[in-house]
Computed example of a mutant assay.
Amino acid sequence: MTGRNTKKTRRKYDAGFKEEVLKMVASGRPVAEIAQALGVGDNLIYRWKNAAKSEKAKSSNLHNGSTHPPDTFLEIERLKSELRRTEQERDILKKALGILGRGI
């Protein structure tokens, strides 16, 4: 062995480049072909693809109502308490009708 330092440095790719690669993949071109043409590893493209998919899933979960913005949360709590109060009033009126109905 020689005494050289053979440490590899990682190349960094900006978001625009990654998006272009993912558009190429989405258009139907084979990953291997894209990787060879751009000098990027196949596995790296697959990692970018999976990361984009998980980000999309996260954002869709956020918009599907699994987590509510604070204003929406407060509105839901207010409506729940109003519903409980209205149900109690209804139950009281049912009991009153039952009591008054027996006397007739």
Rank of each mutant, 00 (worst) to 15 (best):
R85K: 11
I34N: 01
T72N: 12
A26Y: 01
G28I: 03
I104T: 11
K8P: 07
L38H: 04
R10D: 07
I76A: 14
A57N: 12
I99P: 00
R10G: 09
R4D: 10
R90H: 07
Y46E: 12
Y13I: 00
R10Q: 14
P70V: 04
L97E: 09
K94N: 07
A35Q: 02
Q88R: 11
I99V: 04
E82D: 15
E75C: 11
F73M: 12
G3Q: 12
S27K: 11
K8D: 06
E89L: 10
S59Y: 05
M24E: 07
G65W: 06
A57M: 10
E19H: 11
P30Q: 09
I104A: 08
Q36G: 01
E33A: 04
I92V: 08
G39W: 02
R11D: 07
I45L: 07
D91Q: 13
T2D: 15
L97N: 10
L83N: 08
S66E: 15
I45D: 02
T9R: 14
A96N: 07
R4E: 13
L62E: 13
R78F: 08
D42C: 05
R11Q: 12
G65E: 11
T6A: 11
I76Q: 14
S60W: 05
A51Q: 10
E89K: 13
M24K: 09
A52N: 10
P69K: 15
E55D: 13
K56V: 00
P30S: 06
S81T: 06
L79G: 09
E89P: 02
S27E: 14
A26M: 03
K94M: 12
S60A: 15
I45T: 00
Q36P: 00
G41F: 03
P30I: 01
A57P: 00
S59P: 01
E87Q: 14
R85A: 14
A96P: 00
D71I: 09
A37I: 00
A96Q: 12
A52H: 05
D71M: 14
T72M: 10
E87I: 06
S66N: 13
L79Y: 06
F17S: 05
F17A: 02
N61E: 12
R84W: 04
D71Y: 09
V31T: 06
L62Y: 10
S60H: 09
N50A: 15
V25K: 08
R4S: 13
L93K: 09
K56W: 03
T67H: 09
G41M: 03
N64H: 15
G39T: 02
